[in-house]
Design a protein around this nucleic acid. Structure first.
Lengths: 221, 221
DNA sequence: ATCTTCCTTACGGCATACCGTACTGCTCCA
DNA sequence: TGGAGCAGTACGGTATGCCGTAAGGAAGAT
């Protein structure tokens, strides 16, 4: 079983429960932090001291407060950590259950386990830790199909950028100008209209407002 | 100090931490449930048995699953409970920190305390319980000004309904027809345009898409 | 090299949204 | 009772969005 685990979640209530689970699995050393930057520093220090952590359990969304952060979100922390410490196992523990988010983290092995906070969250987290200990990955049941399904995979980065600009109040004309400036192709008004039309059909949206509202609900933007 | 407390939160990790806090305050009987309907039933049974709860601590948002629920959200549970058991103290414990939500629950005394889950959530909850025990209300520091500020109070139910319909893909024409059918006034296209214009100015939005995206981010719809 | 196909772009018609103005009816108050 | 102020409505002009059609250009196929 793991010897040294770092828990990173901004909510104290969550950290509390996670620490109990880790302890009940016989993990001796459990450290908890409430900021991603603190997590990174703890990992770094432990590695330099020759006594590195072997598991990181982290949330994705962290509330912003007065403290400026290099890593304001769990996603960013994970990518930085994965690069610096490839041997560290990483488990995500979050309420976020959009397949898009799961794919973004699990497809390229940024994370090794993805556990959704829910009614059985701690039970699943316990399973996840045991799986990771056996060098297996883990996905919560409700998002276990995330990596198989092809659905909604046809929305690419360009589409996301386009939808984000619309959500920020750009007119189609302004989006076109913006894409021209940024040398993003296609950039013509006509192409933007066409792409939006494709997205509207794909999501069965009545109009642009509806479309943006839907993709916000889906967590795509 | 309270004798009998009911905790209602769908996340097991949260319930765990809250129970610890309640126990540390010397509360003898602490019961926890993960569904609002269960909460209501427990309260009802205890009251009928002549041994009622004296404090309810509940989340607002509960994930939906296979179980059909009479009270799918904490808001609905609270309103039902307040009516049935006016003497029961009610504390909200939630991540939701929009002033709009705080006002909706605290202004008419539906809830007696409103605590935001955060880095110091459990500490604040502890304070809240002690305050309630002294018949005082409690608000987390970050939303303590909710009941004083007048800002954003000008968004009423009509505005919310209008924005929701837009987010669901209705054209302004269709919104007008819908309001006429529902006998909601004003219903003319002209008035709807006017109201939207007011909201756009108020939120500094460039257009309707922007506006809907913003109010979704703010949690108003 | 020519053809096919797909993607990008351009344009025109129509629908909807946006905005200013003006009329109506109501309430409040002198 | 008459006028000010406000909310709701109506209407017209301009801008933007939506949709179909078609022209230009790049990449691959024969």
């Amino acid at each position: 079983m793991f010897k040294k685990v770092l828990i990173s979640d901004d909510l104290d209530s969550i950290n509390h429960g996670v620490m109990t689970v880790a302890a009940s699995l016989g993990i001796k050393e459990v450290v908890q932090v409430q900021y991603c930057d603190d997590a990174y520093l703890k990992l770094k220090k432990a590695a330099m001291d020759g006594d590195p952590f072997d598991l990181l359990i982290t949330d994705l969304s962290f509330k912003l407060d007065h403290r400026d952060q290099t890593y304001p979100s769990g996603d960013l922390l994970i990518k930085a950590v994965r690069e610096a410490y490839p041997n560290l196992q990483i488990a995500v523990y979050t309420v976020e259950d959009r397949l898009q988010r799961v794919r973004a983290l699990m497809q390229d092995r940024y994370a090794d386990a993805y556990v959704c906070k829910g009614r059985k969250g701690l039970v699943e987290l316990s399973h996840a830790i045991r799986a990771l200990d056996k060098q297996e990955s883990y996905l919560s049941p409700q998002i276990a199909h995330a990596l198989n399904d092809k659905e909604a995979l046809e929305v690419d980065d360009y589409d996301i950028a386009l939808l984000q600009l619309l959500a920020r109040g750009f007119s189609q004309d302004e989006v076109s100008a913006h894409f021209k400036n940024s040398h993003i192709s296609p950039s013509s008004l006509s192409s933007i209209e066409k792409r939006l039309n494709k997205l509207r059909i794909q999501f069965k949206a009545n109009n642009a407002i509806h479309l943006v509202a839907m993709v916000k609900d889906l967590g795509l933007i």
